[in-house]
Nucleic acid binder design. Sequence first.
DNA 1: CCGGTAATTATGCAAGCGTATAATTTCCAC
DNA 2: GTGGAAATTATACGCTTGCATAATTACCGG
Lengths: 227, 227
Amino acid sequence: MQAYNFHTESGEPMSEPRRSFTREDPDSRRAALIRATLELIAEFGPQAATVRAIAAEAGLTQGMIRHYFSTKEELVNAAYEAHMQAQTEASEASAGGAGTARARLAHFVAGSVTPPVADPRAVSLWAGFIHMIRRDPAMHATHRESYLRYRDLLQGLLSDALAESGRPVPEAEARRLAIACNAVIDGLWLEGGALPEAFGSSELEGIARDSVGAILGLSLLRDEASQ
Amino acid sequence: MQAYNFHTESGEPMSEPRRSFTREDPDSRRAALIRATLELIAEFGPQAATVRAIAAEAGLTQGMIRHYFSTKEELVNAAYEAHMQAQTEASEASAGGAGTARARLAHFVAGSVTPPVADPRAVSLWAGFIHMIRRDPAMHATHRESYLRYRDLLQGLLSDALAESGRPVPEAEARRLAIACNAVIDGLWLEGGALPEAFGSSELEGIARDSVGAILGLSLLRDEASQ
DNA sequence: CCGGTAATTATGCAAGCGTATAATTTCCAC
DNA sequence: GTGGAAATTATACGCTTGCATAATTACCGG
């Protein structure tokens, strides 16, 4: 390291100009720090997300972390919140297409077990936050809210799809089905992320479609999923 | 801390006897260190598993880690291997009962989504190892082997259960079904561990039974699972 | 164009980290 | 009993960590 510590040939330290900088708006600085934090946690784990590493990854100096966040923990919390919000928005966009409820469900399921949602980085990132989620009440609440929102989305989709095919289900049953379908999706997401080389490229997508279909008693067709 | 640093009333350090000890056999010492390592990673994450914390949790001094393992990393690897081996043995014991294949399958599935297999500690422990699994080839190999062994066990059980009910399936199809059932189980394991308060006490067990049943086209009865 | 203010960089600090080594204690062979 | 080897404790070292503060630079309003 020490990319900015120049020395003379004799080894003596040489006075060296400070790195130049430009002032940027606070939001983009915060975003850069959050992005760097998520990148490091996903790729190398929470241990690697030190203030110095985060600053380097963001192309800044470590003082910026304390300038924009009162503590490193606060930055990590902000990063978690930003990540969960992005995920939720992506899910809702993925569920919001046109077509029959069955087609929207198929599309939603397929999107949840293929990149970029399902990939080793995403699983690693999730795992990196688990311990903090268990201990920090605020992070636990964010996690809970995000999970339930995703599951409710799924429950709405499958309720509509079942009603559409003439087999409406009461809400309690829809809840159970949503938990089950969510489990299939999460399980495939997990396995694809933790052991990607063990599966063919679109194998998990097909298995997800068939399994959710079997649980619901619907057939989710391939071409419906990919539209 | 400093439980063994006595001082006089005036605050001066007082020469103090070393803590007494007994010599124990190397295996039990190694086991104690491994147990302490797993406990800390599960409960507080890898960051909390420092040599000092591990030694304290094991009731030893930190020199023992270097005495029984050449490095802390080696201890962590040994702990991971020991954990995975224990899990594999538990799975195989759970699958090895008597009765029809369908009953054994039901029992196996139920055991995988209820404590002690499914609980927040287990999920945390798994999450704590993920990043090392991704980067350390030896740990990756252990993970892969353990996962495939579990899945093969499940595949054997469901193959037998299907054959038993007059609907044998080719191996390629059995593999797909095993991946799917494994996903349901893992997903419920994950959700139950990450958000335990969101589910009723035996709710996940029932959902697992019904979902695996739906995927396989078998009905797995409650009393079959609990025998 | 220039002075002031806030953003940014650079440096310092105490605490904790993993590892190395010295000092002490246990316990078995004889 | 009593050495003596090995297990165990205690301490020290260099490095990294998160956080604090001092020094510098960019940019805006006049």
